[in-house]
């Protein structure tokens, strides 16, 4: 069955035009030309080869998005069990890590130190510790270079220690990834601790339980937080890396306002401090 996605599969497509497009890096999207003479198997093969190359590139994009999702999910499965060494391996050598309000840790070795600080120097969870961190809601955006990507995720957290404390929380990641020698890695991890509150009473009755500070007191960061908007109940939007995939809504055009603004209509700018 033919599809409308490309016209390359039409057997009668002009091979010369196709070869020319190859050289010009264009795509043969014009109307099929049927009157050109067939120039032999070599040209036909070149057409098929180009068609295959395009399909391989498209399949590679699907594989890239899947690999990035797998990477982030693997991160979640390692971190929730305190497997810091495995988690660290997922980062590029020059990656940066910025979780909550702890500031920025630069490079793989510092990221490893950060994770170990979370685990109080030890690999694995402590007896009686719960560290569930569910990685959900991926929005993956591949870079045009085929070697970089960004993704937004949501982390759901159920943390605590039996007989001591329990917290429920969530927050978004805006992460960046790099394809290094065919393998996707984290190049930048940034997570906003939107809310993390004692389970008893939840977000209606509690402020953030650690004000977004985890280990920076004992392991100072390499750079301060890239932005700081406080902690719950302070709310802010970690900007989306993606643009609207369809369009931003615009209201139907209002009747033309012919009259000049009356002296009573104040500009809005003075409304908020």
């Amino acid at each position: 069955m033919l599809t409308t996605r490309t016209s390359w599969q039409h057997k009668n497509i002009c091979p010369l035009l196709a070869l020319l497009s190859l050289l010009l890096a264009g795509s043969c999207s014009g109307p099929p030309v049927t009157t050109q003479p067939v120039t032999g198997e070599t040209a036909d093969l070149a057409v098929l080869q180009q068609q295959l190359s395009t399909l391989q590139a498209r399949a590679e994009q699907v594989k890239d998005a899947n690999a990035i999702k797998k990477l982030q999910r693997a991160y979640g499965y390692y971190v929730e069990k305190g497997l810091w060494d495995e988690a660290t391996k997922l980062f590029a050598d020059d990656a940066t890590l910025e979780l909550a309000r702890d500031g920025v840790y630069i490079g793989k070795e510092r990221i490893r130190q950060y994770f170990y600080a979370l685990g109080e120097g030890k690999q694995g969870l402590r007896q009686g510790q719960l560290n569930e961190q569910l990685q959900v809601m991926p929005v993956v955006t591949l870079g045009a270079d085929g070697k970089s990507a960004k993704a937004r995720w949501r982390n759901i957290l159920l943390l605590g220690a039996l007989g001591k404390h329990a917290e429920l929380g969530e927050g978004p990641f805006e992460n960046e990834y790099v394809k290094d020698n065919g393998i996707w890695k984290f190049s930048k991890m940034k997570w906003q601790q939107a809310v993390l509150v004692p389970y008893t009473g939840g977000w209606a009755k509690n402020e953030d339980y650690n004000k977004g500070i985890w280990v920076s007191g004992k392991l100072p960061p390499d750079a301060p937080p890239t932005e700081d908007h406080g902690w719950w109940p302070q709310t802010w939007l970690l900007p989306f890396h993606f643009s609207n995939p369809v369009a931003t809504y615009a209201p139907p055009s209002a009747p033309v306002a012919a009259a000049p603004a009356s002296p009573g209509s104040q500009p809005k700018q003075g409304d908020k401090p």
């Binding site: 599809t3 390359w8 599969q9 057997k11 093969l45 295959l52 399909l55 699907v62």
Partner: peptide, 18 residues
């Protein structure tokens, strides 16, 4: 050539659905 061409057309559609 025709078998290759047909298979590529099929893959084009399937990758599109992915």
């Amino acid at each position: 050539m025709s078998a290759l061409s047909e298979e590529l057309a099929s893959l084009d559609k399937r990758i599109g659905l992915l």
